[in-house]
Design a protein around this nucleic acid. Structure first.
Lengths: 132, 132
DNA sequence: AACACTCTTTACGTTAACGTAAACGTCATC
DNA sequence: GATGACGTTTACGTTAACGTAAAGAGTGTT
């Protein structure tokens, strides 16, 4: 786990992140408003760390699979939840399994839908041959 | 494709479907209000066909993977879109491929998230051994 | 007839996730 | 010192997907 720890202290402005992820600055401020990220300040200006940037990336990934922001954050927080307490570990494990069950159901639904689209595509091809 | 055509003419009341799918009757009427299903009537009462029922099932599957109702219906309508016209077939094929690309991206995101959860679970196990 | 259901329409309320606009602060630059 | 470019706060607006409540119709039961 020992990394070279090069430049973890990189910083970003709001417009940089906005452009990189193709989201509005309003969206980024909204995430902060909801407590999902907590950038530092240089006077009034917000300064985002590499960790903030990663959180945004993960939130957006969650969005793409249809999770709400709260759900995404809930999952993300599992990653670095160092609840050393044994009871906390247990409840964390339970939550992880619940999430995984839901995500696996999602994957089944996704696969069904994909194979249905495959069928449509094949039917289309055949029809094209018939027509042409 | 010749099926035995047993009882395709089955009918359902709104409360039957509501219970079967564990959604409210309001939701079912809402779907109709939006034009996603068009049940017949017995006087005032709505009567749902097997096809209506299937559409609801597919809409709900779409919901589970995070699609909007409009998106779900858009995909569902691809299934029985018998656009015999060659140009229509072509544009349908394009739309099918677009959808599939998005769904495949979704599956990648899903798989990443699942493997991240696997990691969390393993870390938890190790921590449990350390603690106990 | 009175009730109990199930269904109907109409309509206002709610939450999430932002969009949009107004009004202002801070630098650099022309 | 005015003009941009970029940032800030505050606040009202918007859409999707229903929830919830009110008031009534139809059908069967006691």
């Amino acid at each position: 786990m020992l990394r070279s720890m090069g430049n973890q202290d990189q910083q970003f402005t709001i417009s940089e992140l906005s452009q990189e992820f193709d989201i509005s600055t309003r969206t980024i401020r909204f995430y902060e408003e909801k407590g999902f990220i907590k950038p530092e300040r240089d006077g009034q200006r917000r300064i985002y760390s590499a960790a903030d940037r990663t959180r945004i990336r993960l939130i957006l990934r969650g969005k793409r699979i249809g999770l709400t922001l709260a759900e995404s954050v809930d999952i993300i927080d599992m990653y670095d939840h160092h609840g050393s307490d044994a009871a906390q570990l247990e409840s964390l494990l339970i939550r992880v399994r619940e999430r995984r069950a839901a995500l696996e159901q999602q994957r089944r639904d996704l696969d069904e839908m994909l194979s249905a689209l495959d069928d449509v595509e094949n039917v289309c091809r055949n029809a094209q041959l018939t027509v042409s």
